[in-house]
Design a protein around this nucleic acid. Structure first.
Lengths: 256, 256
DNA sequence: ATAATTGTTCGTACACCGTACGAAATGTGT
DNA sequence: ACACATTTCGTACGGTGTACGAACAATTAT
């Protein structure tokens, strides 16, 4: 459709050499050509619309008016393509205003913003469970967070430990959230009278607490539940900091 | 190979009617026949040995000297088969001695025991990310934990919230653990000079904190890291309880 | 004993997947 | 114009889940 400008392709190739960091290979193209970015974007689009399971090399190719095997010139394997998608999904993680000057604020921002990104692309969780490779975006974010925290006076060691917990928590929470809501949406998926494990068992009325559990998680708004849980963890952090404070009193850390 | 005893099959079918609760269907068999349990067990064996990806209907059938389609009489779909596997994996969750009489001890036990189960079957995490359906075992465990906690005086509402956090945390932690270790084990998987996103980026030495992060998570023994993180969360719980304690002082919960 | 009914196995087939291989096409440098 | 490098893509292999229906075996009814 749109024609390329072969005149100065050579120059542009020279010029853009910096951009691509996957391996040695460098490509660029105007609108209609293949690009790793375009491929990744198409993959994300499909995953967002129809779920991660529907992301196939063939389908991406179709969406780009190309052929399956062509993609393999820009991406070494599907596995890696998924990794690229994963990282790209973190691209719109927002750094906060600089006005935040306490660790709690920073961690809060991190948690909420992570959650926002994750909810935008529910498939990230699935992906993340089977392959936690860090991409450039994730690394940038992590670095930013750690430097911010240390600027604010938090010991880097503790920061790291805490982030690990927080990160894991947010991921898991969102996973639970999104799979619960998707279970509600596509509730005609099952043959109707096949009442899902859980329902059949709970119908025996032998597990009152669990019933209560399910009720609660259903009726409490997700945001509120998240905030609550988040605060719980942050309180834990707070008490951690108080304990072996700013690297003082390292001795009494054995029993407190 | 082993011959069946067709003489009294009828009687035995009558006798065993109680056991199976999936839907209405009831089956039983001596050693050589198909059973839902045997199918599930085979699936678990494969997943344990070669990973979840290698669990296919065909392969399970082969392992049971049967044909693929035969399995579908005992299991409605592969999706459900995986759910059955998931639940079966929780079967050896151990209840603690009754000597534990404080919430912290109970939650600790729950966390450690969950982790143990998860580590035994690393694929559970993967599975869990894409389908969190509760099975009978999980429900039993949850019910037990909740009743125990309430016996010990913990408000059920808080207990529920806390368990959610803890559960999510343990899952995520173990996921991180196991995928990190598996990345180390099969490190010849990549074409050697294709240096993984992360390594290439970190090689620029622009992200010192992240480097430190990776070092730390690598060198701290997993058990220790887990204990630390767990205590952090439990401290959060502790402060939560102190705050709006045993439903006292609900007013000052706004700012503390 | 014979027939009808039921529960269980399984061969075949379809649509889909990731991707190895190598030939074709396209563009570039001399 | 020719040689070269890059990019495209047709074909094919071996795998997947499972719908369908024929075959078989066991149980029950007559």
């Amino acid at each position: 459709m749109s024609l390329s400008k072969p005149a100065n392709n050579h120059l542009r190739r020279q010029r853009l050499k910096v951009s691509s960091t996957w391996d040695g290979i460098v490509h660029e193209q105007d609108d209609s050509g293949l690009t790793r970015e375009r491929i990744v974007a198409a993959g994300i689009a499909i995953a967002d619309k129809d779920g991660l399971a529907k992301v196939s090399v063939r389908r991406i190719a179709a969406q780009l008016d190309s052929s399956p095997m062509s993609l393999y010139h820009y991406v070494p394997s599907k596995r890696d393509l998924l990794n690229l998608m994963l990282d790209a999904a973190n691209a719109d993680f927002g750094r906060p205003a600089k006005t935040i000057t306490d660790w709690r604020g920073l961690l809060c921002h991190f948690a909420w913003e992570s959650r926002r990104c994750l909810k935008q692309h529910p498939w990230v969780n699935q992906l993340h469970a089977s392959d936690p490779e860090y991409g450039p975006e994730s690394i940038r974010i992590l670095e930013w967070l750690l430097t911010s925290l240390s600027k604010v006076g938090l010991d880097v060691g503790t920061a790291i430990q805490v982030i690990r917990v927080l990160y894991v928590f947010v991921n898991g929470f969102v996973a639970a959230e999104s799979s619960a809501s998707s279970a509600g949406k596509s509730e005609g998926r099952r043959p109707v009278n096949q009442p899902t494990f859980a329902k059949a068992i709970l119908a025996t009325r032998n597990y009152p607490h669990v019933e209560r559990f399910i009720e609660m998680t259903a009726e409490i708004p997700d945001d509120q539940g998240f905030e609550h849980a988040l605060n719980l963890i942050l309180n834990g952090v707070s008490s951690e900091i108080q304990l072996h404070g700013r690297s003082l009193s390292a001795k009494q850390r054995k029993e407190a």
